[in-house]
Nucleic acid binder design. Sequence first.
DNA 1: AATGAATGAGAGTTCATTCAT
DNA 2: GATGAATGAACTCTCATTCAT
Lengths: 219, 219, 219, 219
Amino acid sequence: MAEFATPAGDGYPRKRARTRLLLLRAGLQALASTGPDSLTVAQLTTLAGTSAGTFYNHFSSVSELVAEVAEHLGQGVEIATGVLESIEHDPAARVAIGTLQLLDLAEDDPIASAAFVAMVGVLPDFRVRVRSIVRRALEDGVRVGRFDVAPGEAPVNAVLGTSLQSMRSRVLGESTRTEQEAVVALLLRMLGLAAGDVGTVVTRSQEVVSAHPWRPLLV
Amino acid sequence: MAEFATPAGDGYPRKRARTRLLLLRAGLQALASTGPDSLTVAQLTTLAGTSAGTFYNHFSSVSELVAEVAEHLGQGVEIATGVLESIEHDPAARVAIGTLQLLDLAEDDPIASAAFVAMVGVLPDFRVRVRSIVRRALEDGVRVGRFDVAPGEAPVNAVLGTSLQSMRSRVLGESTRTEQEAVVALLLRMLGLAAGDVGTVVTRSQEVVSAHPWRPLLV
Amino acid sequence: MAEFATPAGDGYPRKRARTRLLLLRAGLQALASTGPDSLTVAQLTTLAGTSAGTFYNHFSSVSELVAEVAEHLGQGVEIATGVLESIEHDPAARVAIGTLQLLDLAEDDPIASAAFVAMVGVLPDFRVRVRSIVRRALEDGVRVGRFDVAPGEAPVNAVLGTSLQSMRSRVLGESTRTEQEAVVALLLRMLGLAAGDVGTVVTRSQEVVSAHPWRPLLV
Amino acid sequence: MAEFATPAGDGYPRKRARTRLLLLRAGLQALASTGPDSLTVAQLTTLAGTSAGTFYNHFSSVSELVAEVAEHLGQGVEIATGVLESIEHDPAARVAIGTLQLLDLAEDDPIASAAFVAMVGVLPDFRVRVRSIVRRALEDGVRVGRFDVAPGEAPVNAVLGTSLQSMRSRVLGESTRTEQEAVVALLLRMLGLAAGDVGTVVTRSQEVVSAHPWRPLLV
DNA sequence: AATGAATGAGAGTTCATTCAT
DNA sequence: GATGAATGAACTCTCATTCAT
């Protein structure tokens, strides 16, 4: 599953931080299978191997922990986006790469994937954040003439909905890994990328993803 | 919101049936804002204007009620699909019409829409049912040469994900009614419908939907 | 199980009485396995094949029904005692016969037996009634010189306790039918019956019981 | 009433153990007046002065608590039996002493007595345990020639039934303390102890009981 | 007379939260 | 800082009881 890096350093602060991380990881794991409202403190502390009292030493409520998990994940996505923008200037490829990274995540870390999908569906802040990233990528694509879509939420919903549904489908075992390329090709065609470019972009994006896999590693 | 028709007839059975419907309606309404696992009997009975004891006269658990709501809704979708198949032979138009009906629902009955979206996301049986309908429509389109997609789950996920995300987006107030056509146009382009046909199909589908609005009215 | 005789006659009163009997029988049956406090209306009406409303047409509460069952049973025991006094003048034999009748009941009608034992343990009125019968028999035996015990509750408790415990033991399958005679012989020895008379009394009592089996048949 | 010793020691474990004991004591007390199936958590926690949540911190259900009370009591009886065997070698005296101890309990701790009687009547495991003790004592008496009864359940039922009924009778105020000796004398005569020995055994047993009173003190 | 739908009080059980250790 | 015992509110479910049919 997604990992929260254990902080280095020593002494008390280090132990405290470690416990906090254990709880955040537990939160991510729990969110994979349980809606944020059904999450219980007992569930979290069992997964984290700590006690109820300790939980409240770190968070004042479950929803606070959930918010923090979302914050970490949101930052992770934005950081990855920043990296992507610095290494790939073609917006079409960026969309393809981002999508492929998400689909890869569904392969390699079903727990983090399920949590990610659920959070987009349910946490308004997280949802806004992810949508903004998608929207910006599409606008870039239109601006440089790679995409042909009217401004608005329609293509955002299409890209986001397709990606999330494909992730969920993979996590649930409905679809197979081999369909990843097909999904990306459909998205590019939908966005109006010239038909002759679709194959090229997909292929190149695959390579980039191999070199830059993404994991929602949260500190 | 979606309506459950009040049964005619008289005497005890009628009263019993009416109460049951009040509870089912309450269930649909509650599912719009609360995950199926967070639903409480108190919530349902408050919405339905009955008492806890009465709830258990009709259902043995909340999840039984949820299953029944899902069953009703699933049947409603299938019936609507049957009607659609009988009045429209172009699979591309059928996909467009179905999508428009869902987007219209998001306008006219946000509660039923939200519940519908949540249920596809969370209830396995319901999910399978809806996916089957989508898959069949796409296969029809490919068979008659209107769509150009490889078999598999990728296009199912794309169509379903886009539609659901658009519905949710509309319910949440993120997007506007005027983007409905854009969504459908994107879907048709994604499925490989000849570019010149997209506009025609969208326009005609709009007309059909005006004449045949859909409401998940459950008996 | 113990039977409540269905009243003859016709018209409504007859039907009403029949329903009442069905409920009383259900009560007896239920008391065999459930303490009077754990008895539920639903249990009774299910056993009786009627509805909750009907129950309240006949009894104002479960405890009223229980009291009525006890009253019936108490009268039944007293009637049987009267019969016994008229056909057998030896008090020792009367004690033996009464005990054997109870032990036979444990064979032939475990349900009525279990209910009987439970009721003596738990319903004060019923308990008093049964104890009085035992006490009178013992006093008679002392008066005519068959028994040799001091007045008081000690022998009443011994006879009653031994009989009830033997019944329960038989109902639970702990002991066998063949031990009936042994129980009676122990009782007679305990009460001080001349050793040489025990065998004779037991044997003769067996014969009487064969000719006069007892069933707590309640009208 | 019977006492559960408060554990010494300190810190958390001690408090936890104390609460547990409060609940067990409450269980014993409640069992004196209520059948095990009618016991409620509210009843127990009121008696124990704790809250419902606390109850479930210690027991997963009422029946688990009941089982534990029975286990404690059963062990108490067995320990007392062991002591008795070590201090008194005459089986007839042992039976007399055991009975007297129970009858004394009815004087001194009506609550524990009532619970004891109810438990023998209703809890299979407890019942088996107590019967075994009685059976063993009787077999010993037969083996050494003090008792004259045929093997089987009949004398077990007689001794147990008489003792329990006498206890109950005393608890209910039907009989008096002065009848204790009479009960024991009846039992010894019933078991076939030589008539001339009965008085001696009773007298000596009284003395032993005075020196070794029994209380089902449970740790 | 019988029925069974509705009711709400109460029982069992869980869970967030506090606090002494 | 971590622990886990205690708490009570909230939830699920049952059941006695009423009443319109």
